[in-house]
Write a protein that binds this DNA or RNA. Structure first.
Lengths: 228, 228
DNA sequence: TCGGATATTATGTGCAGACATATTAGCGCC
DNA sequence: GGCGCTAATATGTCTGCACATAATATCCGA
């Protein structure tokens, strides 16, 4: 028997799967479905809203609800702290701070951080280890203007982890690319120059200013995986 | 003035950001927040539920709602059809079917598709073009047992697109890696052997059986990007 | 003191009704 | 026919209430 908003979600999904409601058609209104399933409209709404969020349905006021023609599948990625990621693989996490400098960042970095030409920033290079082997080479620019004092010793506390615990929740963007290892990356990660590396680049912001720009070059073999 | 569930979501987020509610603490109950904001509990519930879904809050019955200690950030990726992806970049999409064979797939493929050792599968190699230049090299195994007849001419209709339009909505998993271009990939994409390629691997399933296993090797410069 | 039954509590879900809002369809007018 | 206003309509959101469910806290007896 169908009941509850999850039950309705599954039933709607089933009808789409078996092509009772093929791609492109307008499905019955919330009102009609509520009557059919014997529930309140709010319950139908909850189910349809979830499916729209998943990209299976497209909803517009007055126009109604249609089955997506070319559904844009939405995959949700978890972006954990690196330590958690390593530990989730059953390995021991460690890290070494390789470099810590302060100064004016190069122009591309400054512009992506939204900093003026003379602003100073902190630069960190950290190598994360999984069971003692290189896992991720992290290069990070920090905007000291928005960091709460006192700053920790980043050789002891990973910047990655200190930030999520001590700096305001933020927005940002994240990008994934494949790049050949540069000279420095190759040396640090212990791979051949030009080896294919999975690279994550993230910029994070508070409401007003940029916090940090980080580039994670993962050791070969890294897989970013999720369910659809 | 704060009103509506989105307003409440923003206000809660603000309090977390400014550390009125630092990581780890239990925030007031829905009831209390409803009174404070002068709204119904359902409205507070909607706001908090969204934030919990985003990984900012952790909720447990009876225990209450806590600010996540090490928030697992969740990024949502859109997985569009390749044609849409190319057109969204303002380029013209085209594709060429390079290979179409049928036969018993290699063991690793058969096992990931959940096929028996003697089962037959269709193998396609397609090169997708953006403004005439190689964009993605697609290699795909199809399980003909679950495909609706008649099969189209995959030289005319991209398998990618035919599947989303003609096969039941499905679940699956998706993985991203960086790999050096093999001989064939290098030749097809027109890059040097060993060049770093961004690779997407997807397996999709109906409720019962595997539909397809596809590997997309993107031309250098590809960026998978999203907002957090 | 310990273990287990029981009460308490915060969230999860549901209902019926209401109003808001975006968007479309239709109508009238030129 | 084309344009602009108006009415109709489906979804979006909210309220106030209720009961379900899970997890914790408490109490009681051995």
């Amino acid at each position: 028997m169908i009941s509850g908003w999850e039950g309705i979600r599954e039933e709607v999904l089933r009808r789409i799967r078996v092509r009772d409601w093929p791609p492109g058609v307008t499905i019955p209104t919330e009102e009609e479905l509520a009557v059919e399933f014997g529930v309140a409209r709010a319950t139908v709404n909850r189910a349809l809203r979830e499916l729209a969020g998943a990209g299976v349905l497209e909803r517009r006021r007055k126009a109604g609800t249609r089955v997506a023609l070319l559904p844009v599948r939405k995959a949700t990625l978890d972006i954990p702290v690196i330590r958690q990621e390593v530990e989730a693989r059953g390995q021991a996490h460690g890290f070494t701070l390789l470099t810590r400098t302060e100064g004016a960042p190069p122009v591309p970095v400054a512009s992506r951080l939204g900093l003026g030409p003379s602003a100073r920033a902190i630069y960190l290079e950290t190598l994360h280890l999984a069971d003692g082997r290189p896992f991720v080479f992290e290069t990070r620019w920090l905007n000291p203007a928005v960091l709460p004092a006192p700053l920790p010793d980043f050789a002891v506390v990973s910047a990655n982890e200190w930030l999520v615990a001590h700096v305001a929740y933020e927005t940002g963007d994240i990008a994934f690319t494949a790049e050949g290892a540069g000279t420095r990356e190759a040396a640090v990660l212990g791979v051949a120059e030009g080896a294919a590396l999975f690279v994550t680049e993230r910029t994070t912001w508070t409401a007003e200013a940029a916090i940090t720009l980080v580039r994670l070059a993962h050791a070969p073999g890294y897989r970013l995986q999720t369910m659809i």
